[in-house]
Amino acid sequence: AVEGRLDWRTLLWRFLTPTPTDFGGLDRRFVHQRLYLEALEEWNVRVHIAVDTSGSIGSAVLSRFLGEVRAILRAYPRTQAQLYYADAQLYGPYPLELEGPWPRPRGGGGTDFRPFFRHLEAQENPLGEILAVYLTDGYGDFLETPPRFPVLWVVAPGGLADEGFPFGEVARLWD
């Protein structure tokens, strides 16, 4: 049987978009067109994006991961996003903007997901929610207990099977 899968951007949209009942008045961007559409309230979400830079990630997959990160920024321009590179160590955070230079990837060693999640667990975030997105092949050391925030794993083709991830939602990049 063929397994149905949602595109990972669809899953991300579910995390980043308020529910349809979160309206807060008219969206002024459309009033000049005599369209009186209700505006969704702003929802303050900080997206922390980790890109696996371990030795098992080749340059083609790494380029694809970074392209996907740019797609997040294009699709959600008002989202606060921070980039991390991670192998067995964590590098970052680096504030992300669609335009402007991005830091060069660092890494090349083994894979340990724990430093990223431990760093986020230590964050105080009274003004909004944290969402973690991890682009990886899935082969590495996981936390013993799930973090207190949502996690979206975006897995490269040929990566770890879905049931190998002990927490979070898993989405696949297409070949």
Rank of each mutant, 00 (worst) to 15 (best):
A1V: 06
E3I: 10
L6G: 03
D7K: 10
T10D: 14
L11E: 08
W13L: 14
R14Q: 13
R14P: 06
L16P: 07
P20N: 14
P20T: 11
P20E: 13
P20C: 11
P20H: 12
F23G: 03
G25M: 08
L26S: 02
D27Y: 06
R28Y: 03
R29C: 14
H32D: 09
Q33F: 14
A39C: 05
A39W: 04
L40G: 06
L40Q: 13
E41N: 08
N44F: 01
V47K: 01
H48Q: 09
H48V: 05
T53H: 04
T53A: 14
S56Y: 08
I57Y: 05
S59P: 04
A60Y: 00
V61D: 15
L66I: 12
G67D: 06
R70N: 09
R78W: 07
R78G: 06
T79D: 00
T79N: 05
A86E: 02
A88M: 02
A88W: 08
Q89N: 13
G92I: 01
P93G: 07
L96W: 03
E99K: 12
G100L: 15
P101H: 13
P103F: 03
R104A: 15
R106C: 03
G107T: 05
G108C: 08
G109W: 10
T111D: 05
P115H: 06
H119R: 12
E121P: 03
Q123W: 12
N125F: 01
L127K: 06
L127H: 10
L131P: 13
A132T: 07
A132R: 00
V133Q: 00
L135W: 00
T136V: 00
D137G: 10
D137K: 13
G138A: 08
G138I: 07
F142N: 04
T145M: 01
T145I: 04
P146M: 10
P147Y: 06
P147G: 05
R148C: 00
V151R: 01
V155C: 15
A156V: 14
G159Y: 10
L160I: 04
A161F: 07
D162H: 11
E163F: 11
F165D: 00
F167W: 15
V170K: 06
A171T: 07
R172M: 08
R172D: 02
W174R: 13
